[in-house]
Design a binder for these strands. Structure first.
Length: 429
RNA sequence: GCCGCUGUAGCUCAGCUGGUAGAGCACCCGCCUGUUAAGCGGGCGGUCGUCGGUUCGAACCCGACCGGCGGCGCCA
């Protein structure tokens, strides 16, 4: 028994192999039957002949249905007419499950595809998506392991919000109320006093009633927090990290990118240095970028899309006005109205994939900002403790892995980048 | 929360100014000398989202309700 991709090999020509998998396509004539077999690795055309199998076995084989499961034995042959260049001449087979009817056919809507995601997951397209996602998740971790970081595991059930505006999911908690985390940032900050350089990949939950092409209720949040560094160094690290991930995908997933018809140029271009622009510079250039903005305007979806359709590699926007960002961001000592932070916008119109920057590390300053935002100090007692005991300068970031995946694969909706999307109206399958 | 759209066969859709429902695909049966989600012939398959109203008559007009989709805000 071997994988289909390993069977597509000149050294096996004329040899008998046994393959197993699922019926990807099936066509038959009176005396010939073509079963295109699929497994996790690839597809191969297998041909059954009535003369060789006998009438009975031929009839059963040729009446198989899409996605039925079977194993096949036969001789490998090179054949230009076959989809992947090789063909298996079936000498015998065993059927595990003959399907009555596989619901996923060639005419399906995006909605039907989502209702049947548990079956759509078998499609070649989604198999490619899953393989690329796997590379992205691994590459993210590898990058940080290779650079001396520790992976940590923050809690998912928490007692307070990280960011004021976001809506939280309430969960019953032994007579109390708990919430599902919307960001692990504050917990990551606690870890740096022990490990200095930490990262995590964990889910974040947002109960906002968002209905957009790039929001999920549950998403995979890749976060990092680093002791002793500032905004610029943080961006240096993120840039290398993104490039490391893209390089891994280009190295390992060329076949999958091809199945998705991904234009490789923007990915290759993103291996070159990223441009950095202050919010001020962005506003003054906004007219020539096709999206006139006034000082104080936040970047919405439309703004980001228009601006980023001018770029083929990611762009850092830095130094936002303080009123546009949440309380924990550190103001620039030389200009307290601006914040030492950054967003990383993905090119080709995709927009924000990372938010990050320096954290306020002075106790009084942080207390002031909490009060200014109408929040209660008691709720943040442990976060404030970090500024009481051995506080240090530090920076961090949060990356939306599903958004990154969506851009890398050039998908038009984030729901196509995650196997089981959770949105305001979708909890199944 | 706001704006727009939508609901007809398992799937994708058509159905005119109201006259009791149609195609392609899937599935089943048959035919076919190598097919590329093949071709030909036949078959199965519908309380037209729900309830009410108008009408001799409603998939179609009106109302209410229910479900779904897209976009914005919020963010990653």
């Amino acid at each position: 028994m071997q994988s289909i991709s390993s069977a597509l090999n000149d050294s096996l020509i004329g040899k008998e192999v046994e393959l197993r998998g699922w019926v990807y396509r099936i066509r038959s004539t009176a005396k010939l039957c073509f079963v295109v077999l699929r497994d996790s690795s690839n597809i191969i055309q297998c041909v059954g002949k009535i003369d060789e199998l006998g009438e009975e076995k031929f009839k059963i084989l040729s009446s198989l249905t899409i996605e039925s499961s079977l194993s096949l034995k036969g001789i490998i042959r090179k054949d230009e007419r076959a989809v992947t260049g090789y063909e298996l001449n079936i000498s015998d087979y065993y059927i595990f499950c003959r399907n009555v009817n596989f619901p996923v056919s060639k005419d399906i809507s995006e909605d039907f595809e989502l209702d049947n995601r548990h079956l759509w997951i078998r499609s070649r397209e989604f198999t490619a998506v899953l393989k690329i996602r796997s590379t992205i998740f691994k590459a993210f971790s590898d990058f940080f392991y290779e650079n001396g970081y520790y992976q940590v595991q923050p809690p998912m059930m928490v007692s307070t919000a990280t960011e004021g505006g976001s809506t939280l999911f309430k969960v019953p908690f032994f007579g109390e109320e708990a919430y599902l985390t919307q960001s692990s940032q504050f917990y990551l900050e606690t870890f740096i006093f022990s490990l200095e350089k930490v990262f995590t990949i964990s889910p974040s939950f947002r109960a906002e009633k968002s209905r957009t092409w790039r929001h999920l209720t549950e998403y995979w949040h890749a976060e990092g927090e680093v002791a002793w560094i500032g905004n610029e160094e943080m961006m240096d690290i993120e840039e290398k990290m993104i490039q490391y991930i893209i390089k891994a995908v280009l190295d390992q997933n060329m076949d999958d990118l091809k199945i998705l018809n991904r234009d490789l140029e923007p990915l290759k271009d993103s291996l070159k240095p990223f441009k950095r622009m202050t919010y001020d510079e962005l506003i003054s250039q906004s007219e020539s970028l096709g999206m006139p903005l006034k000082y104080g305007d936040d970047l919405g979806a439309d703004e980001e899309r228009k601006i980023m359709s001018n770029f083929t590699r990611p762009l850092f926007i830095t130094h936002f006005p303080s009123e546009l960002k949440t309380f924990y961001h550190r103001p620039d000592p030389e200009n307290p109205n601006l914040i030492l932070c950054h967003d990383l916008l993905a090119p080709e119109g995709y927009g924000e994939i990372i938010g990050g920057g320096e954290r306020i590390w002075n106790l009084e300053e942080l207390q002031q900002r909490i009060r200014d935002n109408g929040l209660k100090e008691e709720d943040y007692y442990w976060y404030l403790d970090l500024r009481r005991y051995g506080s240090i300068p530090h920076s961090g970031f949060g990356l939306g892995l599903d958004r990154l995946a969506m851009w890398i694969m050039h998908l038009d909706n984030i729901k196509k980048a995650i196997p089981y999307p959770r949105t305001i109206r979708r909890l199944k399958p």
